[in-house]
């Protein structure tokens, strides 16, 4: 007899909120890292080309 696939527990309201919060935090951190990288590359280019 084929085994039934394992059912995953649906998330509660509180867990969904925490899930949203964590995801939003990660997205903002990634945005900050990307913006920081762009600024860094710009500034490093200025320094390297200037000297």
């Amino acid at each position: 007899m084929a085994q039934e696939p394992r059912q995953q527990r649906p998330l509660s309201e509180e867990e969904l909120k925490a899930y949203y919060r964590a995801k939003r935090g990660k997205n903002l951190a990634l945005l900050a890292a990307l913006v920081g990288f762009i600024v860094l590359v710009y500034l490093v280019s200025l320094v390297r080309m200037g000297g």
């Binding site: 995953q8 899930y19 990660k26």
Partner: peptide, 25 residues
């Protein structure tokens, strides 16, 4: 989006973890 995320990715260990299984920063 959340529904598909949950259906696709969250294993049992992550389900037990906080934040609905989503890793925080």
């Amino acid at each position: 989006d959340i529904g598909s995320d949950i259906a696709l990715g969250l294993g049992p260990a992550r389900e037990q973890a906080g934040a609905g299984g989503e890793a925080s920063v």
